[in-house]
Design a binder for these strands. Sequence first.
DNA 1: TCATATTTGCAATATTGTTGCATTTATATA
DNA 2: TATATAAATGCAACAATATTGCAAATATGA
Lengths: 135, 135
Amino acid sequence: MITQLLKDKRLRLTSFRKEVLQVFMDNDKAIAVSDIEDALNDFDRITLYRTIKSFIEKGLIHEIVMPGDVKKLALCAVDCNHEEGVHDHSHIHFQCKICKEVFCVDVPSLPNIDLPGYQIDEVEIQVHGVCEKCK
Amino acid sequence: MITQLLKDKRLRLTSFRKEVLQVFMDNDKAIAVSDIEDALNDFDRITLYRTIKSFIEKGLIHEIVMPGDVKKLALCAVDCNHEEGVHDHSHIHFQCKICKEVFCVDVPSLPNIDLPGYQIDEVEIQVHGVCEKCK
DNA sequence: TCATATTTGCAATATTGTTGCATTTATATA
DNA sequence: TATATAAATGCAACAATATTGCAAATATGA
């Protein structure tokens, strides 16, 4: 499962990468670098940063940054056709103002945005509010 | 003009705040903290960070963070009814993949987002593509 | 099994942002 | 207009986040 995911993205199978990817699989929400650090026993911080960078470059995970919050990371959808830094996700990013957690929420389709004069490649929607658990 | 803007937001008029606000007025795009530093001659970094923080808290400017880019800042619309950290902007955030600049682009209305089970307070839309100048 | 390109781990360093505290300044009001 | 006072500033120290270069270790294709 994890092995196949790394192979599909043409990333060499190393035990550290498998460990890091497992942390993402264990979470149903977006996680910060510090969350990954907490989940690992013994690791090298520089290697972690490089692992994250290569996961992003290969389209395995994506960054989510909410104003006023630390950077978070989440798995890409399996069908995300990552190309030239552009992701193709049919989900929105939701942050709960109570628990502060960030979730990728699947939606049937994203609204169509039209900006006269601009070429649009990718639309990302960030929503703030209250999640199901905190309501 | 600048003076009135600060008064309206109940911020004390100091020469440093006027200088920083002027930098925002001189730009039609979102700017990074480093851009402000470059535009100022002699200043204290800590005071700059505190100035930015109070501008954000009073709803004078807002943060824009695009994945893989540094944090940027832009003036809020005059009618942004900032309350409890929630901004009310009828614009989208656009980043050009060529020049990397970030712009606030006004739109007549934002699309309505519906997420069953979630309470939605604020919607922010980030678009990537090619701007008018770079096309 | 081996050659090779990739990945890792370490040291050093850069960037970005915060806290505490004494001094200075803007503003309300007497 | 002078002054009391609450807010803002400037400095030192520090915390958190991230990057680069390089030698050693490892994964993978042939």
